[in-house]
Simulated scan of single mutants.
Amino acid sequence: MFAEERHRLIGGMLADYGKVTVADLSGRFGITRETVRRDLAQLESTGLLRRVHGGAVATSKASTTEESHTVRTSRHFAEKRRIAQRALDLLPHGPVSAVLDAGTTTELLAEAMVDRIPGQRAAEILAVTHALPIANRLAASPDFQLELVGGRIRGLTSAAIGARAVEQFQAMRPDIAFLGTNGVHYEFGLSTPDVLEAAVKSAIVRCARRVVVLADSSKFGEEAFVRFGTLNEIDALVTDRAPQGALAAALERADVEVLVA
């Protein structure tokens, strides 16, 4: 097989799976690993991929890559909606304070709260968020108590970031926090592409009595640029498919409750 044909096939695999390994490509094409590495180096020079340990990932999978709110909302929408509906069951009854982190799945949770929680119960909920889209969702109901954490607004996520937001969360002790994440990795933990957004997420993780992560299964095994929490720091993971392999084992060791929607 000519190199050009291999390169085309590698491009197709990256489009389908987001990553390739040197071992798999060597076996698939019947070539040496050194030849595979040369192929990957050539493709990296064209911008098609980024080499990582043991293989390569699509450039869209780079650790600092972050899609727009519109793209993220449409991606895996059905799974995210199911996750949000399931997460609603974790909201305690009675007077409760709940942080909703920035994210498309947590935004769907806010929508579910407005749609499904009756006025009398909603009046007992103090919802805290630093995300403008979530605040707008919750503000549609006159019943919820709403606390908006401020700071500089990051355009890509419409969420407050910076020292002011971090300090406000550090001064709180909410009953429960619902967090979004860009990656759930068995070693690296929870991560996001932006340093300032990670600082806010870390503050939320450390301030809440109970931490619940909402993540569809496309986030499994992913590592974004900045870690904001370890698996040992979370209490529950709500997802659309049961984790497998090393991630499942790591979650069990960390005593994380996994809920499949």
Rank of each mutant, 00 (worst) to 15 (best):
A84R: 01
E66I: 07
L88D: 15
G54C: 13
E66L: 09
R86K: 12
G47P: 02
L40F: 01
L91E: 06
I83A: 07
A84F: 00
S45P: 08
A58T: 08
Q42F: 06
V52E: 04
A102P: 14
L100N: 05
P95Y: 01
R38W: 01
P95C: 03
T59H: 06
S63L: 03
A87N: 12
V71Y: 15
T73C: 02
S45A: 12
F77T: 06
R81M: 10
E79C: 07
R82V: 06
A98L: 01
T65D: 08
G47H: 14
T46S: 12
V57D: 07
R72E: 05
R37N: 14
K61P: 03
Q42E: 15
P95V: 03
A78F: 09
R50Q: 13
T70R: 15
L91D: 03
H53Y: 15
T73Q: 10
R75K: 10
R38K: 13
L40T: 08
L43E: 14
D39W: 00
P92T: 14
R50I: 15
H69M: 11
R75Q: 11
E79S: 15
L49K: 09
E66C: 05
A56L: 01
S74G: 07
S97L: 05
H93V: 13
A87G: 14
E67V: 09
T73P: 00
A58W: 03
T65I: 10
S60Y: 01
A41F: 00
S68E: 05
P92R: 06
A98I: 00
S63V: 13
A58Q: 12
R38D: 10
L48F: 02
H93Q: 13
L91I: 13
R75A: 07
G55N: 09
R50W: 09
K80M: 02
V36Q: 03
L43R: 14
G94P: 04
D39C: 08
D39K: 03
L49F: 08
V99F: 03
R82L: 11
E66G: 06
S74A: 09
H93W: 00
S60F: 02
R86W: 02
A87F: 11
G94D: 14
G54S: 13
V57Y: 02
S63F: 00
Q42L: 07
L49T: 12
A56F: 02
D39E: 11
A56Q: 05
H76N: 15
G94T: 12
S45T: 14
L91W: 01
S63H: 05
S74L: 10
G94C: 11
D101V: 00
S68V: 05
D101K: 01
K80V: 08
F77G: 03
S97V: 10
R50G: 09
D101S: 03
K80A: 05
A78W: 08
A87W: 10
L49H: 06
P95I: 01
G47S: 08
E79R: 11
A102G: 15
R51E: 04
E66S: 08
T70I: 02
G54A: 13
A58G: 15
G55R: 07
H53Q: 12
T59C: 05
A41I: 01
P92G: 10
G94M: 09
V71T: 15
R72S: 08
D39I: 02
A62S: 13
H76K: 08
K61G: 09
S60L: 04
T59A: 06
E44I: 04
